[in-house]
Write a protein that binds this DNA or RNA. Structure first.
Lengths: 137, 137
DNA sequence: CTTGACCCTATAGCTACTAGAGAGATTATA
DNA sequence: TATAATCTCTCTAGTAGCTATAGGGTCAAG
C-alpha cells in the first residue's frame, strides 16, 4: 500500500493533482489508514499511470474518462477508443504544423543583432507587421 | 473611429476578449461615444494587432505586456525583446519535439484493427503500458 | 514521547478567455 | 419621426486543469 506521497513520486503526478483526479471521478477513492490517510493499491497505481499517459498525449480529462469507462466494460467494441486516438492524432498533427510555422516566424524575428534599441528592434516591428501573415485579417 | 464590433471583425479578436485585454491593461481604454460605447482609433487597431500576433506566436499576456512597455520606451536597448523571442523559440522547439513523439505513439496506438473488443484493444493497452516510454517514471 | 516529515480538508487563485443577463445606444427602414 | 433590429454596455459566473495556502491531524524514527 502506497501513501499519496509515494504514489506521487512513482507516477510523477503531483499530490494535489491526484486528489483533483479523485474529485473529478477519474480514479476511485482509495482505502484509508486508521488515521484517514489515503492508501493506494497496485490497481490505483496502474489507473493513475494510465491517466498520466493520456494526459501526456494531450487527451482531455473527458477523453480519459471515456477510456476509463470503456476499460471497465471489456465486452464493448473498441471503435470508440480508436476514434478517440484518431481524433487526437489529427489535432496533434495540426498543432505540429502550426508550431512549425511559429518557429519559422520566431527565427525570422530574432535572427538579427541584439545591439540596437527598441526603435529599430525586429521583434517589435515583426509583431506589428502583417506582411508575413499566412492567415488573413 | 471603429466600434468594438468592427475592430473585432478586422483583427479577428472576439469582443469579450478585447474588453478583457483592456481590463488587463494590455490596451489603453479608448475614447467613448456620447452614449458610452468604445471608439477605436488607428493606434488602437495597431496595438490590438500587435497583441494578436504575439498571442498567435504563443507569447503569454505577460510577455506581451513587457513588449508593449518596451515599445513605449524606444530609447531602451532591445535585448529584452530579443530575449523574450529567443526564450519562446526554445519552448516552441521543445513542444514540437514532444508532439512528434506523441504523434508517433498515437500512430502506433491506432494503427491496428477497429474490430476488436476493449479486452484486446490497443489504445487502452498502450496507455497502460510503460515499455515505450521515453521518460522514466 | 517528542520531533519532523508527511497528510487531511476546504477554499481561493491561476491563465486566457467565454457566456449570459438585463439594460441602454445606434442605425436602417417605414 | 417612430420603431424595430442590431449593437453595445457592465457585471457576474463559468471553463480546464491544475496549484497554492491555511490551519489542522498523523506517522515513524530515535
Amino acid at each position: 500500500m502506497l501513501s499519496i506521497g509515494e504514489l506521487s513520486k512513482r507516477t510523477g503526478v503531483k499530490i494535489p493533482t491526484i486528489r483533483y483526479y479523485e474529485q473529478m471521478g477519474l480514479i476511485d477513492a482509495p482505502e484509508r489508514s486508521s488515521g484517514n490517510q489515503r492508501r493506494y493499491s497496485r490497481q490505483g497505481f496502474e489507473r493513475l499511470s494510465f491517466i498520466r499517459h493520456g494526459r501526456e498525449l494531450g487527451l482531455t480529462i473527458e477523453d480519459i474518462r471515456e477510456l476509463v469507462t470503456l476499460s471497465c466494460h471489456p465486452e464493448k467494441p473498441c471503435g470508440d477508443a480508436h476514434h478517440i486516438a484518431a481524433r487526437h492524432l489529427a489535432s496533434v498533427q495540426a498543432r505540429i504544423a502550426k508550431l512549425k510555422r511559429l518557429e519559422k516566424e520566431l527565427k525570422r524575428i530574432s535572427i538579427l543583432s541584439d545591439s540596437g534599441h527598441v526603435g529599430e528592434c525586429n521583434v517589435i516591428r515583426s509583431l506589428s507587421d502583417h506582411s508575413h501573415c499566412e492567415t488573413e485579417h
